[in-house]
Amino acid sequence: MPNRPQPRFPEPNTEYFWEGCKEGELRYQVNDATGEVVFYPRMHDPKTGSRDLSWKVSKGEGTIYTFSVVRQNRMPNFIDLGAYSVAYIDLDEGFRIMSTIVGVDNPTEDISIGQRVRVEFEKQDEGEYPIPVFRPI
């Protein structure tokens, strides 16, 4: 099993998001007044400053906006991983998330911008929080 760095707490902005990952939910916020999507999770809507926000659950499907394949990372968690992808995914609900693309044989060949992907929650060796990753549909 992978051993990605875990989120660290207390961190009030992102805690509810990560609790959602334990439930298999990809959670995001909306501004109650304008309906505007707020992401990464925050205490306020960065467009208006409003703190009246509600949580919703994403369907978990989106499109790859851009990506890179990392060939070299000196962090212990990644040093032995080989080449792996880092990507921004635009979820259909209108928010952008950093993640990785799994389920591809060769990340340099098999990933492309515009590809449709779906979230899944990857269990980790250590740590209680599964990490949201994306797999081509």
């Binding site: 990605r4 760095p5 875990q6 989120p7 660290r8 707490f9 207390p10 961190e11 902005n13 992102t14 998001f17 990560w18 990464y40 999770p41 925050r42 906006y65 851009t66 990506f67 890179s68 990392v70 070299q72 990372n73 962090m75 968690n77 990644f78 991983l81 792996y84 880092v86 990507a87 921004y88 998330i97 950093m98 993640s99 990785t100 911008i113 515009g114 990490i131």
Partner: peptide, 28 residues
């Protein structure tokens, strides 16, 4: 702990990969 890092650190994005993603999108 920091809001942005909590959302990004699990993915092993290096400094270079941020710039690389800009290049990838520019090429596309």
């Amino acid at each position: 702990p920091n809001w942005q890092q909590n959302m990004e650190s699990p993915y092993g994005s290096t400094l270079i990969s941020n710039y690389a993603m800009v290049k990838q999108r520019h090429m596309h």
